[in-house]
């Protein structure tokens, strides 16, 4: 059997006495914000926050892959785009109800994740990174080929029911709540899954694959299921992205998005607050969505060249974040190795 003491491992901290006092407080704050922010915020800001909520799911998928399973994906931006594409066409071409379209995104994400995982998971971990990076570069080209160079609009609306009391011009509030509801349900299911034997088996496939295999865990199949689930979460998020913006476009999912997602996962994912790492998806998504918004308000920063311009560039910040986080994790790996020796 898998060591029951695994719950004390920081990587499995989500399974230990959940929710901790801090996590419960954080969840309460988030719940309060979910109710209050839409009533106070501008529609532009609320659209950003809605996207932020959807990106939390992408980060949850990446966290599952990177920190729970020790695997690498540099293509979750593309998988989000796959979900958006599938959700949009499920509504436009197959008459899917818009409210359920994220499920189409989830299914498409799972399928593409499995397609990439089937060959890559039999090989060293670098291969999954290689395939997902290639997918990230290829996806905008595929989308342009499939949908053409112009954005494709969603043939569906999200009209708030009268019992909500939301005015017709404030539909962005309803859209925000729809997305948050989907994200909350997905997080609840994910947490339940990871708290059980499957969650512990995933950690076992990361740390002791041979031992896990000996105890009857099919390492390859479980990893494949984990990659599919992680990709499915990205696809689900892609479907949810359509709720506030109502269109899909190749420019929304460049390869840089995948690299940014990976950078923030490495930087934020190895930290736990109050015993929960899934909570860390919120600040990671906040940086991803709000940093460009903050930079847009400083147009001089974006166009400035030279050394000062370099220091103010968004990609420079991400590069530094990646290098510092990688260095810190490398130091930890060295410390663990020295301790074992």
């Amino acid at each position: 059997m898998i060591d029951p003491g695994a719950a004390t491992d920081p990587a499995t901290a989500d399974t230990a006495r959940w929710p901790s006092r801090f996590t419960a407080a954080a969840l309460a704050v988030i719940a309060a914000l979910v109710v209050v922010v839409p009533l106070r915020a501008s529609s532009t800001f609320l659209t950003d926050v809605t996207q932020l909520a959807a990106f939390c799911l992408v980060f949850a998928g990446l966290w599952l892959l990177t920190h729970r399973m020790g695997l690498l994906s540099v293509g979750h931006g593309a998988l989000t785009g796959v979900g958006a594409y599938a959700a949009l066409h499920a509504v436009n071409d197959f008459g899917f109800p818009p409210m359920l379209m994220p499920l189409a995104g989830f299914a498409a994400g799972c399928a593409v994740g499995a397609l990439l995982g089937i060959p890559a998971l039999r090989l060293p971990k670098a291969y999954l990174a290689l395939l997902t990076l290639s997918a990230a570069v290829a996806f905008p080209i595929v989308l342009r080929q499939l949908d053409g160079p112009l954005p494709v609009t969603l043939d569906g609306e999200f009209i708030a029911p009268t019992w909500t009391g939301i005015a017709p011009n404030d539909e962005h509030i309803w859209e925000f709540w729809i997305v948050v509801a989907w994200v909350a349900v997905a997080f609840w299911l994910l947490h339940g899954l990871l708290s059980g034997p499957i969650g512990r088996a995933l950690v076992a496939t990361r740390d002791e694959p041979t031992a896990a295999s000996t105890f009857g865990v099919s390492v390859y199949r479980l990893r494949l299921a984990g990659v599919s689930l992680s990709s499915g979460l990205a696809g689900l998020a892609g479907g949810l992205m359509l709720v506030p913006v109502n269109f899909n476009d190749q420019s929304l999912y460049p390869e840089e998005l995948s690299i940014k997602l990976f950078a923030l996962t490495i930087a934020f994912g190895s930290t736990a607050i109050g015993g929960s790492r899934l909570i860390m998806t919120v600040p990671a998504a906040a940086v991803l969505v709000l940093l460009p918004v903050w930079l847009v308000d400083r147009p001089g920063w974006v166009i400035q060249g030279g050394w000062i311009g370099l220091l103010k560039a968004e990609f420079f910040l991400y590069a530094v974040l990646l290098l510092v986080a990688a260095y810190a994790r490398g130091r930890r790996a060295r410390a663990v190795r020295s301790y074992d020796a």
Partner: peptide, 27 residues
Amino acid sequence: PMHGDPVPTIGATLGLYLLIGVFVVKH
């Protein structure tokens, strides 16, 4: 300094990918 751990090593090469790209664009 990554000591062969694949996650931070891939992260570091991606960091270099971004750093070189933004350095060239800015200069």
